[in-house]
Design a binder for these strands. Sequence first.
RNA 1: GGCGCUAUCGUCUAGCCUGAUCUAGGACGCUGCCCUCUCAAGGCAGAAACACGGGUUUAAAUCCCGUUAGCGCUACCA
Length: 454
Amino acid sequence: MSDIRVRFAPSPTGYLHIGGVRTALFNYLYARQQGGKFLLRIEDTDRQRSTPEFEREILDSLKWLGLDWDEELVHQSKRLDRYREIAQELIAKGAAYESEGAIKFKMPQTAVKVYDIVRDEVAYDSKEFDDLVIMKSDGFPVFHLAVVVDDHDMGITHVIRGEDHLTNTPRHILLQQALGWKSPKYAHLPLIFGSDGTPLSKRHGAVAVTEYRNKGFLPQGLVNYLALLGWNPGTPQEIFTLPELVKQFSLKRVIKSNAQFNPEKLLWVNGQHIRALPGEVYEDQITAFWKEKPHSPSKELKINGTSPGNLSSEKDRGQGKIPEMSEEKWRKLIALYRPRIQTYGDLKDQAAYCFAEPEYKDAQLMNEIKGNKSVTGLLKQLYGVLEELGDFEEVELLDQKTKQVAEEAGLKPKDIIHPLRFVLTGGTASPGIFELMSLLGKDTCLKRLSAFLS
RNA sequence: GGCGCUAUCGUCUAGCCUGAUCUAGGACGCUGCCCUCUCAAGGCAGAAACACGGGUUUAAAUCCCGUUAGCGCUACCA
């Protein structure tokens, strides 16, 4: 156990966003790796914009991501007296003065050096800085004072934050010097931008953690991707679990230049995690995702009474249950789609025809198949063959029988498989047709066939 | 404007400190091929970058200077 103490200090004026997660993550990784403490401080001195709801969202998001923190939460709003005390102390020392109801820090005229772990030494001349308001006329501290006081009181040894604070650092150091306090070590992280190089915002798509959660991203996928923005292990490894990151992380390998957020790579990383998960974990997670109301659009997945197997009746719907597909079928389904999805939410788009009647959107293809006598003849024949089968449990048998129909007509397997896929799914892409037939079940398959052929 | 930070494929990046091993490596995306009943997944291959200009040196992506560009700070926001 080292005495390293770091902190993440969000303002509850909005949801936890991508940039915040990255900052929190790097603090977390450093603390856990060094055997130090990862603390949380809520910077809620902006009374207008801070809300308890946002605070709860932020904490929820951090928990979901697996970034657990140590010790009690610190709220700046509860430390107002302390800031006032320090401000008075600065006045008493002649380092600050009152001005129009506010208190200003008298900026010493001196050279300041910031030793930054990421970018080495950065020098400033404080002649460039104006006197700094530290207490607003409403009696609330300004960010700079609160940060310096809190970091000191919390025993913070390393301040790891975004590069947007780099230029604030000399002011903070001057404040610390005026108070006779030791400065923590600093590490400024590169910023994350959108694909057009401007600060990440809603224009660039999802920025809030909750949005990613709702879409069915895995916390480890998001964490993994974000770890790679501004840091790399120096090895070709790209896929990491949190513990692996903790082990390999190093502030020394933090990149200096800003990065652009690339949603496509995030998707890929997430897909890798989906495939790397132990089977049971995958099953539990994706099942929970589709069951849990607040975080899944599962209503949209529903399902008319006409779904495969014994799907839910009208009454059962909206209960937040997986459609009353048997446990066994649901498992088959998610196994079949595992290599095909990048987020749990993808199931909705890709397997829609498992939960509702297929939509034949491609009218041209529809007519092509329907208008082709030999194809429809083949399908009718197949219908007859399938009807004779007991159930559709045996994939091998379905395979055999279906191909046999084609062979007997002097055709190739795909000559029947492709039209059949279209009939059953309404499209041209699906998992293996025989696995799919088995999944849908005999009734559904026959029903779709006869409906199509009639 | 002033001050500060940054600058390798479209994007994330390795390499830069300790110059020669770099005809610049990996990943996402893209293209093609293989696998194959389609789509994925997986495998293989390909196109794709050292911002620009000066130095230093036998030798520079790597060191130095300048230019340009991007970003940040310059609030009684955080």
